[in-house]
Nucleic acid binder design. Structure first.
Length: 447
RNA sequence: GGCUCUAUCGUCUAGUGGUUAGGACGAAAGCUUCUCAAGCUUUAAACCGGAGUUCGAUUCUCCGUAGAGUCACCA
């Protein structure tokens, strides 16, 4: 039994996006499942377009997602290896120096071309079955600009050979490159690896996913407050499934259950709503400390100050905040729009707001609040919990009409049309602030 | 256009020569504390079309159609 070696081979000409993540994930899963090796190889043979910042972004993203590699290579460090094979192939007569007439600026007058044997190449794809191509149409393709500048197809084949890659798992945009790579492989005398081509990830309009469709870099999802577990789970289930109805799949389960033949053959449309749903699920599994950190990070300066000075209130707010978001950056928006202010500061509002839709008489509303105040007064400060508050007010509210009591009460506490329920709110604010706010509402109603 | 690949609810998908074609996201309705959110329950929602094989095709074959990828001295 030979060792399984897979690789992820991005070119640093762009950021790490969702589609690449899936390719990396599947390669990684396959290696881990088989106790094999996962190689990360930066394909930077295009000196013009390759940028260090993109390489950093890719490394950063993979690291954050936990897709750790066992070996790392950069093609630009491997020139002598490509050169050696180039010379070798020339000696064998498989490659020749070709005189050219440059058609565009930058083109060479002499390049290295591969002597195409012009035959039909058939290969097996673990995800799709057998595929064959007639390579005649390719002609004698260029494999290097010169001995120091190999082109993609050549460098890939040499590297996969030299690194002992056994399984090539990559996007199906590379499927039509495979025959020519096999040709080079055969000239090199390299064994043929096992191929598995993954379908593309598409935008909602079925076109190729791009930035304008909301396809962000993985690092941007991180900044938006998505969790790596959610991204991995989401991406894994686009084009693969564990063989049952499970939607939440842990990494450990994926490693156990992953299988190449189960990979979907058609492209999958990126569905941000499902990602959000998954992210919300994983957010709920976070500890209080982690939640507090993520939230605190995204509060306004004022709110941060309040939170620091009122740790009890802040910690009680956390479950409420979490309930309303599916990714953490939403906290920023909510915080900036003043959504959390009433937890710390007595709200200001128009008196009409405190009136329930079915009970518009301010005098009656005020009387009901007075009764609420009276009922609340019996509760000891130390036992001011949602349960005790509810018990105190509930019967009375039910008797006279819940909305006519609870709406003004809740509005007095929050000053908002929408908010958590009055019992939770009151318990967070504490007895003193609750009474103060209700008294203020009564005054306002009678003014 | 040539070549290659693909085709089940709006989306991600399960599944089978005979099924009420299953699940999830989203949507709608209801319930649960007045509002919001969450949660729970329920509902609507699909086998691209046409031939053929067959007692019977969503499933197998062929032909259409549609979509995608690819055709560089990019990767």
């Amino acid at each position: 039994m030979t060792e399984v070696i897979t690789r992820f081979a991005p070119s640093p000409t762009g950021v790490l996006h969702i589609g690449s993540v899936r390719t990396a994930l599947y390669s990684w899963l396959y290696a881990r499942q088989n106790n094999g090796k996962f190689i990360l190889r930066i394909e930077d043979t295009d000196k013009e377009r390759s940028k260090k910042e993109f390489e950093d972004n890719i490394l950063d993203g993979l690291n954050w997602l936990g897709l750790n590699h066992d070996e790392f290579y950069r093609q630009s460090d491997r020139s002598p290896i490509y050169k050696k094979h180039l010379i070798d192939l020339i000696a064998k007569g498989a490659v020749y120096l070709s005189k050219e007439e440059p058609k565009e600026p930058g083109e060479r007058a002499e390049v290295l071309r591969f002597k195409n044997p012009n035959r039909v190449v058939t290969f097996h794809d673990e995800a799709r079955g057998d595929i064959s191509f007639d390579t005649t149409e390719l002609g004698d393709f260029v494999i290097a600009k010169d001995f120091e500048s190999p082109l993609y197809h050549f460098a890939v084949v040499v590297d996969d050979f030299e690194m002992g890659v056994t399984h090539i798992i990559r996007g199906d945009d590379a499927i039509s490159n495979t025959p020519r790579q096999i040709l080079i492989q055969e000239a090199l005398g390299a064994p043929r690896p096992i191929y598995a081509h993954l379908p593309m990830i598409l935008a909602p309009d079925k076109s190729k996913l791009s930035k304008r469709h909301g396809a962000l870099a993985v690092t941007e999802y991180r900044e938006e407050g998505y969790l790596p577990e959610a991204i991995i789970n989401f991406v894994a289930l686009m084009g693969w499934n564990p063989g049952n109805d499970q939607e939440i799949v842990s990494i450990a389960e994926m490693i156990k259950l992953f299988s190449l033949p189960k990979i979907q053959k058609s492209g999958a449309v990126f569905n941000i709503d499902k990602l959000k749903w998954l992210n919300k699920f994983y957010i709920k599994t976070l500890t209080q400390e982690k939640l507090a950190n993520e939230i605190l990070l995204r509060l306004t300066e004022t709110l941060k100050e309040y939170a620091k000075n009122n740790p009890m209130i802040f910690s009680k707010m956390i479950p409420i905040i979490v309930e309303h978001i599916s990714f953490f950056e939403e906290v920023s928006t909510l915080a900036e729009s003043g959504e959390y202010d009433y937890f710390f500061v007595d709200p200001m509002y128009e008196r009409e707001g405190a009136l329930w839709k079915d009970e518009k008489d301010p005098i009656i509303a005020s009387q009901k609040l007075k009764k609420v105040l009276f009922l609340l007064n019996d509760i000891d400060d130390a036992f001011f919990t949602p349960e005790t508050i509810k018990t105190a007010v509930w019967n009375y509210a039910t008797e006279v009409g819940r909305g006519s009591v609870l709406w003004p009460m809740r509005f007095a506490l929050s000053g908002r049309e929408k908010s958590p329920d009055p019992f939770t709110l009151a318990s967070i604010l504490g007895k003193e602030a609750t009474i103060r706010r209700i008294e203020y509402a009564m005054k306002l109603l009678l003014s």
